[in-house]
Amino acid sequence: MADTPRVVFAGLASCFGCQINITNIEEHLMDVLGQVDLKYWQLTSSDPMPTDFDVAVIEGAVTTEAAKESVQALREGADAVITIGACAATSGIPGMSTEDHAADMDAVYGDKVPYVVADGAITPMAVKDVISVDFEVPCCPIDPYDFVEVLQHALYGSNIYRRSSTLCGECKNNERGCFYGRNTLCLGLVTRSGCGARCPNLGRPCNGCAGLSPDANVAQARRVADRAGVGAAALDSALRIFNQPIADEEVS
């Protein structure tokens, strides 16, 4: 990397809320930016993306051929690629249309597909399905302090270990009872921990925006949902919000 690492921010299909959220750490923003040479921030600039940089930060899902090419170019130029938010990590909200993308297109546009859509629209993909990604900042939207931590991890290294345990442990640390005792669906059973279970702590069930844990036991979670009267089908359906892959096991 250059002496002061050169950083670029790119936004793909998303609400740009994660980039906005980074600006929300106002009092620390200059401290953070002081550690890097910010070459480009799509949210704040109309210039073209520069070609020389060390760290690429990407928000959003890949939904067009052009986006695919641009993330490939970012990967080629960057020593480290960081994705921010659920759209980039799992294809998120844009990814909800993945399953029946062609049929949905047909239903919406019929034979009158507008030029901007016809020209290169592809089935939405997570960034990591297009290029290798070094670091992910999870959730929808991201916690900006998580972003700072991950950026510093990319700049300086860290031997911190990212647990794949799911959310309930963090929820219990918040002294929270369980939604399943109240016949309410919650995806905390299978969602990767790290956010501090803040939605359940505010009285809202987890909707899985941090992504399915690689060690998630979906089969068991379905049993839990069935037994709680919520139903495994409701769990499966909720998992689709953030386009999580659904495990094949059936409830036994």
């Binding site: 300086y156 290294g157 860290s158 031997n159």
Partner: peptide
């Protein structure tokens, strides 16, 4: 320790 990186 490498401070900031961790301990091993």
């Amino acid at each position: 320790s490498i401070f900031g990186v961790g301990e091993a």
